[in-house]
Deep mutational scan, measured.
Amino acid sequence: MTTFKLIINGKTLKGEITIEAVDAAEAEKIFKQYANDNGIDGEWTYDDATKTDTVTE
Rank of each mutant, 00 (worst) to 15 (best):
N36T: 13
E43W: 13
I30K: 04
D23F: 09
W44C: 08
A27S: 01
L13Y: 14
Y34L: 07
T56Q: 05
V55N: 06
A35F: 07
T18A: 03
N36D: 10
I17E: 00
G15Y: 15
T54S: 05
A35Y: 05
T50W: 07
T3E: 06
V22Y: 12
G42R: 03
D41V: 14
N9F: 13
W44N: 03
D53T: 15
D23V: 09
A24C: 13
A21P: 01
G39Y: 06
I7M: 04
A21S: 02
D23K: 02
A27N: 01
N9M: 11
I30Y: 13
W44S: 02
N36A: 14
A27L: 06
K5S: 03
A21E: 02
T18K: 04
T3W: 14
T54M: 09
M1T: 11
T45E: 10
W44F: 04
A49R: 09
D41L: 12
F4Q: 02
V55A: 06
G39M: 05
V55T: 04
L6R: 00
V55K: 04
K14M: 09
I7K: 04
A24M: 10
D53G: 15
E57V: 12
K51I: 04
N36S: 13
N38D: 02
L6N: 00
I17L: 11
F4H: 02
T45I: 08
K11G: 08
D53E: 15
V22S: 09
T3A: 06
I8W: 14
L13V: 10
A27E: 01
G15M: 15
V55F: 06
G10L: 14
L13T: 06
G10Q: 03
N36K: 15
F31P: 00
G10H: 06
L6V: 06
I40L: 06
N36C: 14
A21H: 04
F4T: 02
K51V: 03
K51F: 10
F4Y: 11
V55G: 07
D48G: 06
E28V: 11
F4G: 02
G42C: 14
N38V: 11
M1I: 09
I30W: 14
T52F: 07
G39L: 05
D53K: 15
K5M: 08
V55L: 11
K5E: 02
N38H: 14
T52I: 08
A35R: 05
A27H: 00
E28D: 09
I19R: 01
T12N: 09
Q33E: 05
T18I: 12
G39R: 05
T45G: 05
N36P: 01
T50F: 06
I19H: 00
Y34I: 09
Y34R: 01
T56V: 09
M1G: 05
I8C: 11
D47K: 05
Y34Q: 00
Y46W: 12
D48M: 10
T3K: 12
N38Q: 10
E28I: 14
T18Y: 13
N38P: 02
N38W: 14
F31E: 00
E43C: 14
W44K: 01
A21Y: 11
Y46T: 04
T18S: 08
K32A: 08
D47R: 05
Y46S: 03
T3M: 12
K32V: 04
E57C: 12
I40S: 03
I30F: 13
D47Q: 08
K11I: 14
I8R: 00
D23M: 04
L6G: 01
T52W: 06
V55I: 11
T54Q: 06
T45S: 11
E26A: 12
I19D: 00
Y46D: 02
E16K: 07
T2K: 12
E16R: 08
T12R: 07
D48S: 11
G42W: 11
N36L: 15
K14T: 08
T2M: 13
K5Y: 12
I30M: 07
E57D: 06
F4P: 01
A24H: 15
A25Y: 10
T18D: 02
T56K: 06
T54H: 07
Q33D: 03
F31S: 01
A49V: 11
T56S: 06
I17C: 14
E16I: 13
A49Q: 10
A27F: 03
E26K: 02
G10P: 01
G15S: 10
W44A: 01
A27K: 03
T45W: 10
T2E: 04
A49S: 10
M1Y: 11
G15K: 13
V55Q: 05
E16D: 04
K51Q: 11
T50G: 06
I40C: 12
W44Q: 01
T2P: 08
G10S: 09
E26Q: 11
W44T: 04
D53L: 15
Q33N: 04
N9L: 12
L6P: 00
N9Q: 08
Y34G: 01
A25P: 02
I19F: 05
A24N: 06
N9T: 05
K5W: 10
G42K: 03
K5T: 12
Q33A: 10
I17K: 01
D48E: 13
G10C: 15
K51M: 09
D37C: 14
T54E: 05
G15P: 09
V22P: 08
T2W: 14
T12I: 11
G10T: 14
A27Q: 01
F31R: 00
D41S: 12
D41W: 14
E26N: 05
I8V: 06
A27C: 13
D47G: 04
T45M: 07
T56I: 06
I7V: 10
I8M: 03
D37F: 10
E16T: 13
T2S: 09
A27V: 08
A24S: 06
E28F: 15
E28Q: 14
A25C: 15
Y34P: 01
T50L: 08
E57R: 02
E20Y: 14
T18G: 01
T56H: 07
E28K: 14
T12W: 13
V55D: 05
I40K: 01
G39C: 13
T56G: 08
A49M: 11
D37H: 05
G15I: 15
D23A: 03
T50Y: 07
G15C: 15
K51A: 07
I40R: 01
I30N: 01
